[in-house]
Nucleic acid binder design. Structure first.
Length: 260
DNA sequence: ATGCCGGGCGAAGCCCGA
């Protein structure tokens, strides 16, 4: 089973690119972030025409996440527990009902958190704490589990082109990295890093200043796998193709392959 | 570099992203 994650930076603006990539890459499951639209305006029919069923946690203008799957989706849950008034659409989870026993997946869009020292950064850290608590509960089920999406965390300095340029950024703060590391150490495997020794490999390149052409990027889109999913992990790759296309998202897809 | 691009909203210019 191949599971991909992609921050598309508006599903409506990106629809031709997304449909082309779905036809070419044909993942079994796709975790989308920043769809930037409500379920009413989500291009469900075009995506269903390619054989996918859709589960959507949408929001007008900002955020929004979705799960696309060629197999049926069960037990769809919107939002992390204990939101306490949080109205950002940044989480959706579901169980993929497949012959191999299936897998639970979540599509997450972790808050950016800039500027550091503001309520936005506090919101990022609080969201990460809520995520850690829910992840502990999910791990307790001892099932194959894949948490994928835009984590807005640069795990280490060699996951970006210029650590000095990112030192003051919310994505590289010790408080952000510590929470990410603690989550991994609570029982997950970061799939791409587990399978790759290469440094300075990226999933995001800014639109500005020719960042993609100069490969000035950061690695912030990740998969965290439970032990039961890690046992089945066969590959994890970053697909740079879509970032080079006209009208690209500033993120490119990442995917992992689980053995049946 | 901190808004140089790009998207949403809505019909100009501002908010937001990372």
């Amino acid at each position: 089973m191949r599971i991909a994650a992609w921050n598309v930076n508006s599903i409506r603006a990106r629809l031709p690119n997304v449909l082309e990539w779905l036809r070419e890459a044909a993942p079994d499951v796709v975790l989308l972030q920043e769809i930037k639209t409500t379920e009413d305006s989500f291009p469900r029919l075009e995506i269903e025409d390619l054989g996918y069923t859709c589960a959507i946690n949408g929001q007008k203008t900002y955020n929004g996440v979705a799960i696309l799957s060629k197999q049926p989706l069960r037990d769809v849950k919107h939002d992390l527990p204990n939101g306490d008034g949080d109205d950002h659409a940044r989480w959706i989870e579901a169980r993929v009902d497949a012959r191999d026993g299936g897998v639970r997946v979540a599509s997450l869009y972790l808050p950016n958190g800039n500027p550091v020292g503001t309520d936005k950064f506090a919101y990022k850290l609080a969201w990460m704490d809520r995520l850690a608590a829910h992840a502990r509960d999910l791990l307790a089920a001892e099932e194959p589990l894949v948490l994928g999406g835009d984590w807005n965390v640069i795990p280490a300095d060699d996951d970006c082109h210029d650590p000095a340029a990112w030192a003051g950024d919310a994505l590289a703060q010790p408080d952000s990295r510590r929470r990410f590391r603690a989550l991994v150490h609570s029982g997950f495997t970061e799939a791409w890093r587990a399978l790759h020794d290469e440094r300075h490999i990226y999933t995001f390149w800014d639109y500005q200043a020719g960042a993609y052409q100069k490969d000035n990027g950061i690695r912030i889109d990740h998969f965290l796998l439970s032990p039961q999913a890690t046992d089945r992990l066969a590959a994890c790759e970053i697909d740079r193709g879509p970032r080079a296309r006209p009208k690209a998202s500033d993120h490119t897809p990442i995917w992992c392959e689980l053995r049946d």
